[in-house]
Design a protein around this nucleic acid. Structure first.
Lengths: 204, 204
DNA sequence: GTCTATATTAAGATAGAC
DNA sequence: GTCTATCTTAATATAGAC
């Protein structure tokens, strides 16, 4: 491929999105300028507009890609019929994904209000679909008598809150590994849902 | 008091801070301009600078006042020596405060990264002090054998996540009243901590 | 205490050269 | 595909009149 105007080109597209993601996570969408993104990528500001029609679309693309990756990754997994196994699978999946995609998760949560109305609708629907995965697992387990839940909706949201919180304090070099955290959470949540016997295949 | 330049003045100070709080909560600090605040207050932009030296201080003042109100309100309460009573008191206090100060809570959580370095240190310390209230209650209850906790720090953070989440979905006109939510949470958390007997003085 | 006017800086986005 | 240069708009903050 021919170089254009003396600059390296074929890697720019992914670098634009990665840089924007990192800066949005650190400073917030509204506080980051296109000039700052360009500077960190190592191009002039005009070049960015080869990769996005505007700043808003840059944010939207980042959030949509993340949510679709998340949903597709879950759908692509083998699904157990046992509610407790399914729940533990979900916790492991959620934590693995979220502890390794901290910027994406943070931006997708924090920048909802900076989406245009039409973009917000799209992202909110994807987000809701993800919450429904957990909600359905809980409903199923509750109906089967495996989980003991007083108010299903409140319990779902409380669990989501618990799981979301992890992203705010986890550090790869911290006291607990992502595997240890997963185990603690799996036990904590099972206990929380009043599961009778904690006897389970280990390290599922 | 004499009116100045044909305008009403004595109410402006609180209105500036209330308006800024509302707009920061809705659109985010970086996305809100001083002009927009002035317009909503009903003054010209220059008038704002009678009440704050700059925009940053406006944000800092809002966050500091909120955190100090929160801590002072807790300190001013009678404190029980029974860990479970204390825990339920804290949950009730937390939810009552947070369900009625949604904007303050939201801004204090979302805008941390828009504080200047020196302002961040002050707010972070206040935030940490608040978390420590719950952490100490759990430690005490754990030592007394009333609560059954595997990892104290993770449990504290999980609980904080659960409690924080409430602010994102509670609506005064929603299905559950703030009183009902409080009861559900008190029971859920007690169960979560493995408290043996749910027999408690009601509506504490 | 508030106004109008303005200084200064920086933002998003585009045009046209290479 | 990227550059430089520029258009247009809007931001924070200040000065001085009333």
């Amino acid at each position: 491929m021919a170089r254009t105007y003396g600059s390296f080109s074929q890697n720019t597209a992914p670098r634009v999105f990665k840089t924007a993601l990192r800066l949005f996570a650190q400073y917030g969408y509204a506080a980051v300028s296109m000039r700052q993104i360009a500077s960190d990528v190592g191009v002039q500001v005009g070049a960015l507009y080869n990769y996005t029609p505007d700043k808003q679309t840059l944010l939207f693309t980042i959030m949509r890609d993340h949510m679709e990756n998340l949903l597709n990754a879950w759908e692509g997994r083998p699904q157990s019929n046992d509610p407790l196994v399914r729940l533990k699978d979900f916790i492991k999946f959620h934590l693995t994904f979220h502890l390794h995609k901290t910027d994406e998760v943070f931006v997708s949560y924090m920048e909802l209000r900076n989406l245009s109305e039409e973009n917000f609708v799209v992202i909110e629907k994807l987000r809701r679909n993800y919450e429904l995965i957990l909600e359905h697992i809980l409903e199923r387990g509750s109906n089967d008598g495996v989980f003991h839940i007083s108010d299903a909706r409140v319990t779902t949201l409380a669990l989501i809150g618990m799981l979301k919180e992890v992203g705010t304090w986890y550090r790869p070099e911290g006291r607990l590994s992502s595997k240890e955290i997963t185990n603690i959470y799996q036990d904590m949540v099972a206990h929380f849902l009043g599961v009778d016997s904690p006897v389970m295949p280990a390290n599922r």
